[in-house]
Every structure is written in structure tokens, then in C-alpha cells.
């Protein structure tokens, strides 16, 4: 049971009950899975939520993770979108330290990354940037020299391309 460790993106539809997040988180921790990000929110069906989970591991490890996740009674479906064509996106808010003089340069860089300046302070500004995680990583890398005061990322949300909804996927076998 080996293979290379890489990042997987899983999408799960779960019942919107109190405690579901605890159950999912408890299972992650107990089985030693390393969660890179987790995003939860409403989905198209009332009473249910959709979670997007980024987890690192070998294919076998993530398969096991998927099965354990599916075993939770309140988890309706699980689908691994890593090797299927999918839209993946994430948003970050970054407060960058910046003097008035440097503002235009930073605005330029943000523009190149399709970021938006959503707030400007006396010696800082907040950039909102949305895209695949790698783009956000690169943006952060480029602006690092200015000094990042505060950073918050939503975690990835993902959806398979085409007309098949993720609630049809599952990890039954």
C-alpha cells in the first residue's frame, strides 16, 4: 500500500444537523488524516450542506478516508474530484502593508492576478483575490516583500464540470 502523497479534493454532501462538523473533524483527527482546508456551506437542497475537503495523502490513504467519511450516517455522498475535470476556486483576503508611494505598484500586481482592492488604510490595503489555490499562492509570494499583515483564506470549493451533480457520487465500494 504505497504510492505518492498528493493533494486530493473531496466533495461531500452532509445532513445539516448540529454536530456533523464535529463528527467529520473527529474522524479526521482520530485516523490521522491531514486536512489542508475544509469549506462548508448551504447547498441546493434545504436541510443539507456541502463540504469541500482538501486532504493530502496517497491514493490508497485517501480512498480509506473517503470510505470512513461515507460511513458517517449523516454523510450522504462523497466524491473525489482530484482526477475528474472540476472547477476549483478559493478566495483570500490579504492585508498588505504599503506606503502611499507603493500603492500603485501593488494595485498593478493585484490587477494582474485579477485581485480587487476592497479597502485602503493609511499604510495598508486589503486585496481580495479569487482563483485556484496556486494562483493565490503565487500572488502571496509576489507581494511577500511588502509585508503581509493579515491573511485569511476560505479554503477550496469545488464542483465537477458537466451536468452530473456531486450528490450522485458516493464511496460505496
Amino acid at each position: 500500500m504505497n504510492g505518492e502523497s498528493r493533494s486530493h479534493t473531496l466533495v461531500a454532501m452532509v445532513a445539516d444537523h448540529p454536530g456533523v462538523l464535529t463528527r467529520v473533524a473527529s474522524m479526521f483527527r482520530r485516523r490521522g488524516f491531514n486536512i489542508a482546508s475544509l469549506a462548508v456551506g448551504n447547498c441546493e437542497e434545504p436541510g443539507y450542506s456541502r463540504m469541500t475537503i482538501e486532504v493530502r495523502g496517497t491514493d490508497d490513504e485517501v480512498k480509506q478516508f473517503e470510505k470512513q467519511l461515507y460511513k458517517l450516517v449523516e454523510v450522504i455522498t462523497v466524491r473525489d474530484l482530484t482526477d475528474v475535470s472540476a472547477v476549483q476556486t478559493e478566495t483570500a483576503l490579504v492585508r498588505v502593508r504599503v506606503s502611499a508611494a507603493d500603492r500603485p505598484v501593488l494595485a498593478d500586481i493585484a490587477g494582474i492576478f485579477h485581485g480587487e482592492i476592497v479597502d485602503v488604510g493609511r499604510d495598508s490595503m486589503i486585496v481580495q483575490i479569487t482563483g485556484v489555490s496556486e494562483t493565490i499562492d503565487r500572488f502571496l509570494d509576489v507581494i511577500a516583500e511588502y509585508g503581509i499583515d493579515e491573511l485569511t483564506r476560505t479554503g477550496v470549493v469545488a464542483m465537477a464540470r458537466g451536468s452530473k451533480a456531486s450528490r450522485n457520487g458516493s464511496a460505496r465500494g
Binding site: M1, K63, Q64, K67, Q68, K71, A171, G173
Partner: peptide, 16 residues
Amino acid sequence: DPAEIGKVLDTEVPIV
């Protein structure tokens, strides 16, 4: 239990 299959041994014929 599907989660038990392939957990420990490489399995030629997994049957849930």
C-alpha cells in the same frame, strides 16, 4: 464494511 476492504492487505477480489 467497505472501509475494511483493502485497509490492511492488497485485495485481489474485494466483495462488499
